[in-house]
Amino acid sequence: MVSSTKTIVISGYYGFKNSGDEAVLKSILTALEEQGKAAGIKIEPVVLSINPEWTSSMYGVRAVHRMQLGEVRRAIQESDGLISGGGSLLQDATSPKTIPYYLAIIKIAQWLKKPTFIYAQGVGPVNRKIFNPMIRSVFRKCSYISVRDIQSGELLQSMGIRSEDIHIVPDPVMGMPLPEQNNEELADLSVSGEEELPVIGISVRFWDKERRELNAIADALTDLARKRPVHLRFLPFYQPEDEQASQYIADKMGDITSYGGKISFYREEQEPQDMLLEVSRCDLILGMRLHSLIYAANQRVPLIGISYDPKIDHFLKRLDSAPIGSSQSLVPADLTRHLITMLDSLEAWKEEHSAQITQLKQESQNPARHIVEFLGNRR
């Protein structure tokens, strides 16, 4: 039984059709709905998006343009609070404008006397020290702070945020379910079920200007294909760049059918859960994109990470793992050996990491639970 309705504005990197960030939004919306139902509270989200029409159509929620600050202010004014997150919002590696924007959105809510919640963010890197006092000032006024890894928490502590005010939680996507129409219908569509070849899902992106990591991956996969037949399934998480990076590797590899293998591309994604389903069909994931690795863990698919950013290392550490290499240093022979080792021990990997993954999935609901409880106690 619903006892009240609460409107919450959600700020993040939404509407850009980046599969990982859209998965974060889908996961937050799902968790808020589930926790709201459990508490007898109807949560009405309003999403700040670069493409409000698309976001509204995709998720069935109200959305306003994230760059129309008049609309943003009105939405926050009419709400019961603001969520900032998840994802890597507070970092200046991609642009010096990112941190000021997201802090400004939180500050608007605080000026309007609305509670503000930091939802499973990955904080950093923050290379420009001028941002530290800005983050400290805004975060100290937040009603709840959660970050997705210990390192983000330590960075906030170094800026002057008390450790007791910081909650370490998993990435929200650890709790995202498969599409509702799965089970028998979707089992019939399983990629790995169509053939005897092991399916390796591959998520890559452009990062190193000289493409050293992509060249190394191409060399390693070519060597692997010579040694055993595999189905290499490229999974572009961000269009069109990731598909171009994938095609770059495929072009370098050439035809592997003479070795009994095959290469394919997944291009049918309509929403984040589609990609999650595609990952679930793979036997092994080789990923640069953080959320390719999180999707794999979500579905208990063995994974190998290649680091281009500390967030990759931080997530893998939660699984007592480490990247096989980085965008600056990746040895093809090492990657080939590791791929073969993993292919020969898939069930052992699943058994070894089962308890960790179960705990991460359960804990991924903590921010939504806390926020719903907070809103439920406000009259």
Rank of each mutant, 00 (worst) to 15 (best):
Y13T: 03
F16Q: 06
N18D: 05
N18R: 14
S19I: 00
D21K: 00
V24G: 10
L32E: 03
L32G: 10
L32F: 10
K37N: 08
K37H: 14
A39G: 06
L48W: 03
S49G: 12
E53Y: 15
T55V: 08
T55I: 13
M58N: 07
R62N: 11
R62L: 15
A63M: 08
V64Q: 05
R66A: 15
Q68E: 08
Q68V: 13
R73N: 11
D80L: 09
G81L: 07
S84C: 14
G85A: 09
G87Q: 08
S88P: 02
L90E: 15
L90Y: 12
Q91D: 05
P96D: 12
I99Y: 06
Y101T: 12
Y102A: 05
L103R: 06
I106L: 06
I108L: 10
Q110A: 12
K113M: 04
I118H: 02
A120E: 01
Q121G: 14
V123L: 05
R128L: 15
I130L: 12
N132I: 13
P133I: 01
I135V: 10
R136V: 10
C142H: 09
S143M: 10
Y144N: 11
D149S: 10
D149N: 00
Q151E: 15
S152T: 06
G153R: 03
L156A: 01
I168M: 07
I168D: 00
M174G: 00
P177I: 12
L178D: 01
E184A: 13
E185S: 12
L189E: 07
V191R: 01
S192W: 07
G193L: 02
E196L: 07
G201Q: 06
F206G: 11
W207G: 03
W207M: 12
W207Y: 03
W207H: 02
K209F: 14
E210L: 14
R212M: 11
R212G: 01
A216Q: 13
A216W: 06
I217F: 00
L221Y: 01
T222I: 15
L224K: 00
H231K: 06
L232C: 01
R233G: 02
F237I: 09
Y238P: 02
E243Y: 09
S246K: 11
K252L: 08
M253P: 01
I263E: 00
R267Y: 04
E269P: 15
E271A: 07
D274E: 06
L284K: 04
I285R: 02
M288Y: 03
H291D: 05
S292Q: 11
N298S: 03
R300C: 15
P302Y: 04
P302L: 00
I304W: 11
I304S: 00
G305K: 00
G305M: 02
S307R: 03
K311E: 03
F315P: 07
S327V: 10
Q328E: 09
L330S: 01
V331S: 12
D334F: 13
L335I: 04
S345Y: 08
H353G: 04
A355Y: 14
Q356W: 12
I357M: 15
L360M: 13
L360G: 09
S364W: 03
V372R: 04
F374M: 08
L375N: 13
N377V: 07
R379L: 14
R379T: 12
R379A: 11
